[in-house]
Amino acid sequence: MATAATVVTPLISTRGGFVRFARRNPTIVIGGAMLLVMVFVAVFAPWISGDPFTVSPVDRLKPPSFADFFAAGKIDRFGTDNLGRDIYARTVHGTRISLVVGITVSILATLIGLAIGLAAGYFRVVDAIVMRVMDALMAIPSILLAIALVALTGGGIAIVIVAITVPDIPRVVRLVRSVVLTVRERPYIDAAISVGSPSQKIILRHILPSTVGPLIVQATYLCASAILVEAGLSFLGAGVPPEIPTWGNMIAQSRLFLARAPWTIFAPGACLALVVLSINLLGDGLRDRLDPRLARRM
C-alpha cells in the first residue's frame, strides 16, 4: 500500500504541473508538440514511408487516395508527381532537409553572432567597425546574398546553410550588443572591474548569462525563417540540388502541373507552412516567458 502511494503521488503532481504549464503557455505546448511530431517524422523517415526516388511512369499524377492507407508499398497516399514518384515519401523525406537546415542555421548564426556581439558590446574599438559592417550586411537583401553565393559556388546543402547563416548574423549581433550595452552599465560590472576581474571573465561570467533568454527566442525565429528561405532558394533553383527531395524542389518541379495535379504542390506546401507555424508558435510562447520586455513591445 505504502509503495503504491509513493508511486502515484509524484505522478499526479507532475501531471498537474504539466497541465498548469500547458494552460499558462498554450503556444509553447502546441508549437512544441507539432515540432516534436515533425522531428519524429524526419528521424524515422525511411521507416514510415517508401522510397522517394523510385520513378514509376505508369503511376504519373495519380490523385491522393486514402483507401488502404497503411498498406505497404502504397505510393499514392498523397498522390504521385509527374514522374510517378510517391509524394508522401518525398514529403516525409523533405522534412529532414528542412529541419537540418533550420536547426544548423539557427545554431551557427546564434553562436557566431553571440561572439561578435559580445566583443562589439564590450570593447568600444571593435564596436564602431563591426557595427558598420553589420549595417552594410543588413542592407543587402538576404535572398540575393544567398542567390549570389549559391550561383557562384554551384550549390549544395553546406553552401545553402552558409548562405542563409551569413545574413542572419547581423540580427543576432545587434540583439546581443544591445543586451551587453545595458548590462555593462550595472553596478556589479563596475564592481567586477574594480576587483580586477579580467575582461574575459567579466564577459563570460557576468554578461553572457543575460543574453541567453533573448537569444533562445531569437534562435527559434531564425530557425523558422531559415526553413522558409531554404525552401524559397530551392524553389528558385538556387538551393539544394534538384535530385534531393526537399519541399522547395518538389514545388518547383510540380509548378507546371498546378491545374491538373494541385496535390503535387499543396502536400509539401502544407508541411512547410505547418513546420514554420509550429516553430513560430514555440517562439512566441518562449518570448512571453523568457523575454518579458520584448513580449510587451510585440
Partner: peptide, 22 residues
Amino acid sequence: AVAGFSLPVFVVGYLLVYLFAI
C-alpha cells in the same frame, strides 16, 4: 498575423492562383 509569418510566399501564391484563377 502568425499565419502571415508562417505561410511561404510561393505556397500562398499557388493557392491563390488555384482558387481564383484556375
